[in-house]
């Protein structure tokens, strides 16, 4: 029995389709399989959550789609962006897609910003790499982007270095970077971890607005159930590199099928309350 997936209706094909993905590392002790036959879809305009405990392979799955796995990782299976194969295309073709049609908002904003380059320059790089535009034009686009992610006083802040930004601002700068070229798919890897609740809520709203206004599909990785409940349409539950269950958010919360999902839900009782309060 297939569950009803609203975003799949009327769409020709998923924005991102992953089939039987495996990611292996060669260790002295043998092969370490960090992602084990994962299959998942993200449909256009859909926000899909991937949830699972630390080390369950969420980041490796995300990086596979960007083809940015760490040195030494071996990838298997198939990945397609809007029907186009990503595993076997050449590096320069892949480069043309990165930042333009598929964007990554990485897990740790502070580490993910170049400490010796002004934030504005970094946020503007997608334009620089993919669109032939004057620096002046890029500059004003960057200011607009920073304004869009609610950074106050963007005209002066573009000149700041990353360390002059607060944690939440760094995270929003990373989001701005991901949004720059209205990609059809945004992969957000725990973009709200380590942020306080109010900032977190603002960022989640921002992502929802982006989906609504720009029509991007979003793959949202987290280990916090509350966020999934609030933001996502569909959710995949991962454990030890495998997808143990997937389904619409509402059903997963109300009637989880896998034991592991049930355990997750029981371990976080506040979710039910949050979910209840919203209804």
């Amino acid at each position: 029995m297939r569950e009803y997936r609203p975003h799949a209706q009327g769409a020709a094909r998923p924005a991102l389709a992953i089939r039987e993905l495996t990611v292996d590392f060669q260790r002295r002790s043998g092969l370490l399989r960090t992602v084990d036959k994962v299959s998942l879809d993200v449909w256009p305009k859909e926000i899909v959550g991937v949830i699972g405990e630390s080390g369950s392979g969420k980041t490796m799955t995300a990086l596979s789609a960007m083809r940015l796995l760490p040195h030494g990782a071996k990838i298997g299976g198939a990945i397609a962006l809007g029907g186009r194969d990503l595993v076997n295309i050449g590096e320069s073709e892949m480069r043309a897609l990165r930042g333009d049609r598929i964007a990554l908002i990485p897990q740790d904003a502070m580490q993910s910003l170049n400490p010796t380059m002004r934030v504005g320059r970094q946020v503007g790089e997608p334009y620089e790499f993919h669109r032939k535009q004057s620096y002046g034009a890029i500059w004003s686009k960057v200011v607009e982007l920073l304004r869009a992610v609610k950074i106050a006083d963007p005209e002066t802040r573009v000149r700041d270095y990353p360390h002059q930004f607060s944690g939440g601002m760094q995270q929003r700068a990373m989001i701005a970077m991901g949004l720059a070229l209205d990609p059809e798919l945004i992969i957000a890897d725990e973009p709200t971890t380590a942020l306080d609740v109010t900032v977190q809520a603002r960022i989640l709203k921002l992502l929802r607005d982006i989906r609504d206004e720009r029509g991007s599909a979003i793959l949202f990785i987290t280990h916090e159930l509350g966020i999934v409940a609030e933001l996502c349409d569909w959710v995949y539950v991962m454990k030890d590199g495998k997808v143990v269950e997937d389904g619409p958010v509402k059903r997963i919360f109300e009637a989880p099928k896998a034991d592991y999902t049930r355990m997750l839900l029981e371990a976080t009782p506040s979710i039910h309350r949050r979910k209840g309060a919203k209804r």
Binding site: M66, R98, P106, Q111, S112, L113, N114
Partner: peptide, 18 residues
């Protein structure tokens, strides 16, 4: 080269030279 911000640059589509 193994730092996160290098991965970010690549994620934006930077050429290896850049």
């Amino acid at each position: 080269l193994s730092s996160d911000y290098i991965r970010t640059a690549r994620a934006k589509g930077a050429k290896e030279g850049v």
